[in-house]
Amino acid sequence: MEGKAVISRKQNNVMPGETRARRSLYWQYMVEPFLYLSPAIVLIGLVMMIPLVIGISYSFQSIELLNPFNTGWVGFENYIDLWADRKFWIALENTFWWTFWSIAFQFSLGLGLALLLNTDFFGKKLFQALVFLPWAVPTFLSALTWAWLFNPVIGPLPHWLTALGILSEPYNIMGDPDLAMWGPIVANIWFGVPFFAITLLAALQSIPGELYEAAEIDGASAWQSFTKITLPFLAPMIAITVMLRTIWIANFADLIFVMTGGGPANSTQILSSYVFTTAFRKLDFGYASAIAVALLAILLVYAVFVLWLRKKLVKI
């Protein structure tokens, strides 16, 4: 027996079966995943990637459905118009503030909620289900409801704000160009807090409990435990969530479209709602695509910047 099972290291003579093996089982292993993947690939390719390329090409064309004879390639004309378009620059600034305030409030309120949910209290399960409920509300419904709440005649908020002395009289906040943006922002905060709370809660629960016990034995106060253990542990999750969420919110036009339609006087127009109104109301696809490409470029620059920043800061 031992004789046969020698530890031989024969020369690399190719066995006759090798090529056949590659063709059959190997072939099967290569192809099989694509059987499962092909519907997804086809769908994403046809409905997202190809239109994406077409969309970019539209930005170099004049395509106005209301003006069908004025169609064709126009080079950078749309971009030149964009550069001179005051509404574009207003929308850009609005996009920044809309995203910034939405994220700032969603994150801080979400973190607070996650910390609360990470403790024990009576009726926690029910509480959790109820505070997460806004996330399930269809966007157009939240928009309508908040528009109602902000209505000076029939909504309670202006009256309450007046009673608290914040407003001098119950007037229409969403009719005031200086304040109008706060309407959609508040609705967005309401809608977005659960998302942050859920994500951060998951991260919180992954922190091993012994760390806190060790810190307590070492004499750390609750605040020190929070800043020295909780925050550093959450940091990677926070970074990635905030980045993705920023991009998502900057693209999120539904609330604004329903609540203010971008008005009054474009004071709530953000880039993505500007894309939509240009495409939907003016049917000017060329110009809408140019705005969209500009938005995409800005978001790309932002993403690259954040990733660069992360690389600089994370020195592990």
Partner: peptide, 17 residues
């Protein structure tokens, strides 16, 4: 990437298609 680019970007091409 499809989760990140503005979906509205393809609203015009989709409409035309």
């Amino acid at each position: 990437i499809t989760q990140m680019f503005p979906l509205l970007m393809i609203i015009a091409p989709i409409y035309k298609i």
